[in-house]
Every structure is written in structure tokens, then in C-alpha cells.
Amino acid sequence: MQIKHSVLGKGDKKVLFDIQMLLYYKQEFDELVKTGEYTFYFLERGQFTSLFSHDFLNRVSFSGLDKTYKKNSDLKDYYQSLLSFCREEKIKACVFTSTGQYWHPDFLQLLKKEGITIALSTADDDTSAIKYCSLPYTKYYDYHFHVGVMYDKEGKTIADVLREHGGNPIWLPLGARADHINQDIRFDNRDIELCYIGNMNPPKFFRISKLKRHFGDRLKLYGAQGNGDRKSLKGIFYKICNKLFRLGYIQKLTEDELLEVYRRTKIGFNLHLVPYKGPSNSRMYELASNGVMQVCDNKLGMSRVFEDGKEIVCYETIDEAIEKIEYYLENEKGRIEIAKAAYLRSKNEYSYLHVMEKILFVLFRNDL
């Protein structure tokens, strides 16, 4: 079986990713290959995901992967072909992203026997997905990069849970893409008082609805599903919820429009599916990278990312969020000070180029 992939670079340090990273991070990888050290390989994800059933993709247990592996000869052929590919190309490290559900431990063990360092990189460990995508698989990897901080409100961290399951966790920020970082920043003359950009998932409806009732048209809502005007069942569902929770108009944005909204916004509201799990969403880094002062939940774990009161403003209840938003809408100087501090922190530490440099340092630190 021929392994479908793309390649970038000509260096001796060869790293394989199971996703087309260049779709989102081309500037970062172009910068990395300029050193002459690296060659990056990117698998065509559809080639191996098509080998799994739809039910499997809806988060089954480890036994589901084992069952698929034992019965699916095409999957075994793909694993063997990929192993041969790694051997022929002299791959030094593999980074498997999003979930461990595609890669059976038997295959991972064969990679290790070839002297290949393997890492799992997950971004949804602050949700229930950790039970399916991370915990059953973490022990089979040399490293597990994770972006979330807190696991529960009693103080247990995601790193604690991964270690309990035999993993070797390393926290990394999710980071902001180079093309989502405003290099020509201004913190004043912003005409949108408050915005929320993101999906309107059911656990968020009550919280956003309360915010909308208070701020009215001062709060602008933007989301991928827009105002629920699609003719799909999901679109109809969002349209009903919009009316039920009186959220008003939710605008869909192109990427250019997204960045323009960031540049015009004074305060960005942020929340997670579970208020005490995380913090880990991309919105947190993009708001900071565009000079938007951020009001966010996840106060318990936030100190790992931003300093409350200096780089971000945290809340525990929506009433507290409303009070703090109103205060900083009146206190322009304080808002700008916090926005500037977060912008500098994000630009200097949390760009995706910095994230990739940390990943590569870990993967190749034994070569130093």
C-alpha cells in the first residue's frame, strides 16, 4: 500500500505527523525548515480514518480499537506499509494528534523497536473526550503533549490523571497561528465593546443567554453555525435554541472577518464547556494575540497560562463576569494595560512557532 503524504524540508531530523499541519501552520513550518535541520512528513488523514467505521469515530473504548485491528486486514496492511515507510525514510519521531484511537499499541511497539520516538498530542483533555481519546492510550507513548490544565475542581490536574494511567505528560499551550497574530497592534479606538466568538454548544446557552440579556446589542455574537439558517438538523436545532434563549443574531465570519472583529473589540468573553476544566481553547490565545482584553472562566487553572488581574480577568459566575466587564468598559486605562500584557505574553511565549520549537526540543533532546 502506498502511503499518501506530503513532505517539507531536507534535514536529518525527520518527523512524521498524522495530519496535514500545513493547512493551518505553513508559516511556522516554513520557518522551521529554514534551519536546515528538519524534514517534516504529513500523512493524508483520510487514508487511514476511512479504515474505521463511523461508530468508531464516535468515541468507543479501547476494546473497540482492538476489535477493529484484529478484524480489519486493510488496517493491518496500512500499519505495515506505514512502518516500512518510516523505516525507508529514516523517520526519527512520530507525532499522533487529537486522539489515540487510530493507533493500536502493537503498531506503536513496532515503531519503538525501530528506534522511533512516538508522542501523542491532544487538545480536548478538558472534556469527557479524555476518557476515550487519551487515558487508554497514553501509556504506550514516549511523551504525551496536552493543552488543558485542570481536570476537576478539587485541584487534580490533567497531568496528574495522565500519570495515573501510565503516561508521560508535558503541558504545552495550544498557541496562536502566525497569521492570527496582529503585528500592527493598536489597543485604543476599538468600537466593539464586547464579543463572543465560538460555537454555541448546549452547555453554554444558559451562560451566554444571561450575558446577552444584560448587555443586549453591546454584546456581539459570532459562531461557525451562524444564526442557525442551514437546512440541516443541526442548523434547525441552533435556530430553535437561538429563539428559546433569545441570543439574537449570530454572525458567521470568514477568516479575514474574524481577524477584523478581533482588532475592533475591546473585551472578549471566553468560556469552556465545563467552567473548571481547562483552560485550553484556541480563543484564549487568539484574543490575547490581537490585543483584546479577555474575561474568562477556569480561574483555578489559569495561573498556568495568564496571570489573573494583570494579563487576563477571571470570573467564577456570570454575575461576576458582568460586573468585571462593566468595570473595564469604563476603565479604559486598566483594560489597555491588561490587554497589552497578555499580548506580549502571547506573542513571546504562545505563538505556534514557539509551541513547535518546544515539541521538537523534547523529541530530539537526546540528540543534543
Rank of each mutant, 00 (worst) to 15 (best):
H5Q: 10
V7Y: 03
G9Y: 00
G11M: 02
D18F: 09
Q20K: 14
Y24E: 11
D30T: 08
E31K: 09
F40M: 00
F40W: 07
L43N: 09
E44W: 08
R45Y: 07
Q47D: 12
T49W: 01
H54G: 03
F56K: 13
R59F: 13
S63K: 08
K67E: 15
Y69D: 12
S73V: 13
K76P: 01
Y78V: 04
E89W: 03
L111T: 08
I118S: 14
K131F: 13
Y141L: 02
Y143M: 06
M150D: 04
T157C: 12
L162G: 05
R186N: 13
F187G: 06
F187V: 02
R190M: 03
I192N: 08
G198I: 04
P202W: 07
R207M: 13
K220Q: 15
A224Q: 11
G226W: 14
K231Q: 14
I236H: 15
I240R: 10
C241A: 15
L259P: 03
K266L: 12
N270T: 00
V274Q: 11
Y276F: 15
G278T: 03
P279N: 02
S289W: 08
N290L: 04
C296M: 01
G309Q: 10
K310Y: 07
E323M: 00
E326K: 05
G334H: 02
E337S: 00
L344M: 08
L344A: 06
L353V: 04
I359P: 04
